[in-house]
Design a protein around this nucleic acid. Structure first.
Lengths: 143, 143
DNA sequence: TTGATATTTAGAATGATTCCAATTCTTATG
DNA sequence: CATAAGAATTGGAATCATTCTAAATATCAA
């Protein structure tokens, strides 16, 4: 989780492009999020951010993640009323939650599926977002 | 919300078929839920159930709704971390939330859409349920 | 009718998230 | 570089949907 200057500059740039002041905490939380392609909760992001030299408060992790979502840098995933999870994958995708492991997988959404889904809406319905979540079991070998 | 004997018998029967003891409270909560095709929260179901002669506790409304969901009599709908809503429509359907009114609409899911959605899953993924939620705006005339 | 089991209940407890008000940063401008 | 205005961070308190608890009550098979 130690960043070299190039990576740091890249982070600063994407924060600025998103209209966010590049603070030490935001850079760190964003790098933590991008470092793994999974779907951590706020608490998990906080744990992973503990390495930050002078520490970081839970409230700040909440703040950072909220501003990232607002500015489109990450997405949120909710399963029932479980703690919200955060997802750095910006392509259109669905989620599949394995009930045995609790792990959430990204499922790419082909454009034709999105088109077909929009076509089932009655006239006058203007969707701004769509969320598709499966849950079930997987029989895969990759942990 | 007053029930005649025939309707009451019908409710008792569906509760029994679902493996639930037909109590006064369950009959009432279920009838409240079936009376309108909307998506009330627990609090709203409780308000609508207040007519019950000796009253009903919030805890019981939670209990009833949970047992209905467990036995397949109703479905749950969640938008982000807002209070859970309950839905008496058992056909496969998606939800569309109008951001202006907060109202949730049912959108029927044609079988071909379900088939196409299952086809995007990698091998070994066995879905047990799928949840599809739109949100956006509607330009309809019906309130 | 009665006993075994299930349900109801009020209120306390939980837990994710939001709010608050004080401190510390960032950055544009002189 | 210094500074001031606005932003971000912070620990702790507050919120609020939901779950838990344990005692009272209801259901139903025998």
């Amino acid at each position: 989780m130690r960043l070299n200057t190039t990576e740091l500059d890249r982070l600063k740039t994407s924060l600025k492009q998103a209209g966010l002041k590049p603070t030490r905490q935001r850079e760190h939380v964003l790098s933590v999020l991008l470092a793994r392609r999974d779907h951590p909760t706020v608490e998990e992001v906080w744990q992973r951010s503990r390495t930050l030299s002078r520490g970081i408060s839970l409230a700040t992790v909440y703040n950072c993640l909220e501003s990232f979502v607002d500015s489109g840098l990450v997405k949120q995933v909710n399963y029932e009323r479980e703690p919200t999870r955060y997802c750095p994958n910006l392509r259109p995708h669905a989620h599949f939650k394995d009930q045995e492991t609790g792990r959430v997988y990204d499922i790419d959404l082909p454009n034709e599926v999105l088109i077909q889904l929009n076509s089932i809406l009655p006239e006058g319905f203007r969707p701004e977002a769509i969320e598709i979540s499966f849950h079930g079991r997987t029989k895969t070998q990759n942990s």
